[in-house]
Amino acid sequence: MNTSLIRMENIHKDFGKVHALRGVDFEVRPNEVIGLIGDNGAGKSTLIKILSGVFPYTKGKIEIKGQRISPRQYSATKAHKMGIETVYQEQALGLKQSLWRNIFLGRQLTNRAGFIQMKKVRSETDYIMKDFLGFTGGGVSPDSRVSTLSGGERQGVAIGRAMYFEADLIILDEPTRALSVKEVNKVLGFIQQVKDRGKSCVYISHTISNIYSVSDRFVVMDRGKTVGRYNRTDISEKDLTDELIHHSATAELAEQRKRLNSKRDK
């Protein structure tokens, strides 16, 4: 029986001579939140971009809902169709546009002639904001411009959009970077909402304390490989932090050694 939502096996990705990923195994099961952690350059973002169809991969095998994906046919649009939505920090929102335009962008509710069904779009946006996101009052309406929202609320709109369109997996790439503590809590609340609705989430962050509180499992990456897998029940927040620091330190040492070697060679 195949219970995984996503199964990636032995994924390699080369950018010219640089081996960004060197045999990554990664799995997401239904209704779980995975915290993907690792230092800069560990390959987290590359892995995510492969999963969301932005980069093709060099070698390996990907299955989504038990269906084998061929790297040539896979794309961002295909990923959307298969229920995978990626939320990048602020990037997929038009700041000067209203909430309803942002939520329905690319999937507008229109009549046959292509005219937008305003009533429906406004009421659905209202529903998404109140029921999915818990925005209550505060002067935010479907016609509010995204530029008037706070950083955390903007993340919320992107997450709400993904949930509304029935994504099975929502990938959040550093969603809390540059947010205040209060805003971070909002985003963590949105992630909890995703889980409560039976969907899965991959959450990438540097901040272990954030990731620890919402994730069911952790995957640690280091220099293009997955080097650790833990259930939250098996590891304390402190041990997880130590684990990450340990990998960063060895990565730094390796880097220094490489630099020394190349100097000596010269």
Binding site: A76, H80, Y88, Q91, A92, L93, L105, G106
Partner: peptide
């Protein structure tokens, strides 16, 4: 970029 990412 937003437009492109949303499939426009």
């Amino acid at each position: 970029n937003t437009a492109r990412m949303m499939g426009i």
